[in-house]
Design a protein around this nucleic acid. Structure first.
Lengths: 211, 211, 211, 211
DNA sequence: AATGAATGAGGATTCATTCAT
DNA sequence: CATGAATGAATCCTCATTCAT
């Protein structure tokens, strides 16, 4: 990490090999997530992960070439879970209702994964490789939102002046960062409903969607 | 062992007593900011700072008890600079114009300090003390925005249904995080004006301010 | 900062799991004793110990969490050796002869371990944890002496007026410190027999034992 | 210290110069003793002494060439005080009474200086120069005791078989070390009188003095 | 003399990764 | 495959002493 490129890793732990091997690998992966959540990336030691997974220190390196490697994989799984839930059906109730539903859905996913989201933010601040992976995931989600906005623009529901891509980006940043500050940095506001209602209302009004 | 005497308590890292000392301290502070910006907090070594400041290694510790301590002070100065510029005059042109002006002003400040903002985000992911300092600064800025929104609500310019405090919080998150992704994580969108215009438009519409 | 993760708690410095590990640990322990004897505790560097044991710097910390920790263990072993030898048989020749034998025995043990006794005295002057350990060992030895004196008092061999516990304490201090000054501080008196004879004579007369 | 000989010190602070200078020097000396007592030699910093004496850091070196130098001088004064009090009048009451008086007198002096005695023991474990100074003081005191014993031997009060020099040495060790363990290492025996009575009794019986 | 700033060698400890068994 | 021992570069911080003013 930290741009230490190093020699080409000899693809340690790529093929899951035996059934038993696959289970061990899985154990390490779960253990890694747990420890990352508890201690953050920086304060996690490979030894912690190995112990939590009940494997020998060296066995970690049988399945993963480095601490970064497990992290990337843990994070990738999490992104799967997170983006699974932004799939708001393109047809269905009113646009405003769909915005609300999407926000709630994202909120639920965030809540489930809040601890890891914090660590992800941490790693994103110093690991270029990881930044790139995150950018890709974000781009996907924003692209889908932009598509929806454009559709609404064509339907005359949203002002055509608005830059759909930029708006999607900015509104995603709003929701994302609000939840981050809420869950992770513990901005001590008491009432979640107020936060969510406000996010809904601001999004809908900003887009000019009918209620 | 040896009952750990620790550093000489009140002496280390205090205000220098002479003019010369004050200058050296300042040199170190500037050097620290430069190095932090270039390498990030984690990859900065005290040796780097000392060398950049043209002082002996030990001289760093004459003025600051630790790497964290300089960082806190560098960050504090930066927060001064950043918040100096969110002071949008409460009287003057139209509310929409004032929102625009405030956004531009914040944007300029962010641009000036973009590198450090990145590092600040980094440190905020693992340092509790620093999180608290940042929370305080944020609370101040959000309070001021909330006040403005409430004024506009009393003037009938903003829907009274809106939770002023929450809205201020969410819109600040939107602007803040958009700029962060823009400057720091290098979301490769080419055109700043588009971003700013969109942020303005979304803010104004979200609040329902007349244009 | 960074909430100080600290060393990997339970792992460092623990009992090695394999035969090979046990041997390495033993090597380090012996090397530590040698180096402590040669340089004293304060002037011993972990690097010295590692080099003497022919292990890498880091390997020291595989088995011991700190310089203090090895020292405590070295000292503990030594105390075992020292107290093994104050076990004067409670039956046997005359009390006076037994006093003499105990003194000689202790003298021999002291001579064997003189270098380390010096270091132990050194560490005892600043390390509270170690003071405690030493106090316990001393208390055991003094308790046994006191028991013997009480037995002699009941047998009418020692004046019943004497405080057995205090006398044991004071006489132990006499022998101990005399040997310390003799061996360690190098009081340059030439003739060991004279010292030992005097210690015997004073002890026996002080207790009033028949010769 | 630690045998770092170094170049010949340019006799810093030898001549007390001005009246004012003499007072400053005295202030530093007192401050040094206080700090040594509070923190021990190893944990005392020159900065502590300077601050306590209310002089600038650098002024310490105007009067003393090193931390060791002040310590030696503080210790020397203390030895003056300690030995002043072993001057038991060679004529007067019975020998036993004189032994008792000498013990009490030494006990009082020890109590007054207990803290520094601890530090002295500490420094004696690693500083050769200091060991020598201490040996000289000890030799003086032991010489005087030996003289007294010899006198008593010639007077037929003490068995002529006893090695006067060795006996003086051993009995001094007994008293000294008993007080050390009592005051410094805090052997938690409650009752000082019992200790002193026992020391008196053992000394007197060991020498065979009539009571 | 007095002041306090400047110096920098020195040492304990950490921990990702490699390797021998 | 599994195990756990071995490695050693890297980095923070201390503090006696010197020096410029």
């Amino acid at each position: 990490m930290r741009s230490k490129a190093g020699p080409i890793e000899e693809a340690a732990g790529q093929a899951p090999l035996t059934e038993r091997g696959a289970r061990t690998r899985e154990r390490i992966l779960c253990a890694a997530r747990e420890v990352f959540e508890e201690r953050g990336f920086l304060d996690t030691r490979v030894a912690h992960i190995a112990r939590r997974a009940n494997v020998a220190y060296g066995s970690f390196y049988t399945y993963f070439p480095s601490k970064e490697a497990v992290f990337l994989e843990v994070a990738d799984r999490l992104f799967q879970d997170m983006t699974q839930h932004d799939l708001v059906p393109s047809t269905g109730p009113s646009p405003a209702a769909r915005v609300r539903r999407a926000n709630r859905s994202y909120y639920e996913a965030y809540r489930r994964n809040a601890r890891m989201m914090a660590i992800i933010e941490q790693v994103a601040t110093f690991n270029v490789e990881f930044q790139e992976m995150r950018r890709r995931h974000r781009a996907g989600a924003i692209g889908r939102s932009a598509k929806a906005i454009e559709r609404w623009q064509r339907a005359g529901l949203v002002d055509a002046d608005l830059d759909a891509e930029m708006a999607a980006r900015a509104l995603a940043a709003m929701v994302d960062h609000s939840l981050y500050l809420w869950f992770v940095q513990g901005e001590d506001t008491p009432d979640t409903e107020r936060l969510l209602d406000t996010l809904d209302a601001l999004t809908i009004r900003a887009l000019g969607l009918p209620t």
